[in-house]
């Protein structure tokens, strides 16, 4: 709806002060859209695809050719600029589709699943390009199923379930609102099972969990003072090799807020694509 591809049944849309319903064509001049699947022209080469997309925004020949060269360079596609789009790898297609979406230097960019299904190197490059655009003042709307990607790139995040926003905020706000617990993971020199009940009896305000052979988790609603625990273990001849604070991830917050398991969501998405 924000891009003008479908029409809202109710409400208003304002994009940078422009009426997004009655004056959508004006709004579209400052919007860039990169769909989840590459939709450039198979028979045209990369350079011609970019030049064509630029012409849709009224850019003159010299201007669009200059911009196309710039983008091919920026996206490391210069050496394949004259190759037909259909001969590109998936990662190259994604990069060229993003380049086509920003050919007119939009103020607002909609990116749908920019790194889904592509190799690590290309995904890293795309993330770095998104951050670069963000730093240069472009407002980027990024849709992703990769929560760690949102956590790493986005200033504000909205969790959407069944088409409705259920929570919005910065990463810090979302973490805070989720009311997370403090967790310390201790790696011991022997099995933690033998010590679990004893520890729980001596430190009743903490919750002791054992996961794996030598790992012991200390869970508390407030910050944990480690010295008494370490001293207690030391007196019993148990060495602590490592003590690590386990911070909840945005994925944990997502699961808590939405009640949706991320794995299930990923499987549904993959199933849907098949």
């Amino acid at each position: 709806m924000l891009t003008g591809l479908s029409r809202p049944s109710a409400g208003e849309i304002w994009i940078n002060g422009i009426d997004g319903i009655n004056n959508i064509k004006k709004a579209q001049s400052i919007i860039g859209v990169v769909p989840d699947e590459s939709n450039l022209y198979d028979d045209m080469d990369g350079f011609d695809n970019l030049c064509f997309c630029a012409s849709l925004y009224g850019m003159r020949k010299e201007e669009r050719e200059k911009r196309a060269h710039e983008l091919l360079e920026q996206f490391s596609l210069k050496n394949v600029g004259k190759r037909p789009f259909k001969a590109y790898s998936k990662g190259m297609k994604r990069k060229l589709t993003i380049a086509a979406g920003i050919i007119h230097n939009p103020k607002i960019l909609f990116l749908d699943e920019p790194t889904t299904g592509i190799d690590v190197e290309n995904a890293r490059q795309i993330r770095s390009l998104i951050l670069d655009m963000k730093h240069r003042g472009t407002t980027v709307f990024l849709t992703t199923h990769y929560i760690e990607e949102a956590e790493r790139i986005c200033d504000r995040i909205a969790f959407i379930v069944n088409g409705k926003i259920v929570k919005t905020g910065t990463v810090a706000e979302l973490m805070e609102n989720a009311g997370h617990e403090h967790i310390i993971k201790l790696t011991l020199n022997e099995s933690a099972n033998g010590i679990k009940n004893e520890l729980q009896r001596n430190f009743p305000n903490l919750r002791i969990e054992v996961k794996g052979e030598n790992a012991c988790y200390i869970v508390s609603p407030v910050k944990v003072a480690l010295s008494p625990i370490l001293q207690y273990l030391d007196e019993r001849g148990i060495s602590v090799f490592e003590a690590k604070e386990i911070r909840p991830t945005l994925e944990d917050v997502f699961v808590k807020v939405t009640g949706i398991e991320v794995d299930k969501l990923q499987k549904e998405k993959e199933g849907g694509k098949k």
Binding site: L5, Q28, S29, I31, P35, L56, G58
Partner: peptide
């Protein structure tokens, strides 16, 4: 089919 028509609909042309 290739969804490239979206590009035309998304462009600021009448």
């Amino acid at each position: 089919r290739g969804r490239s028509f979206d590009r035309l609909l998304l462009a600021p042309i009448s």
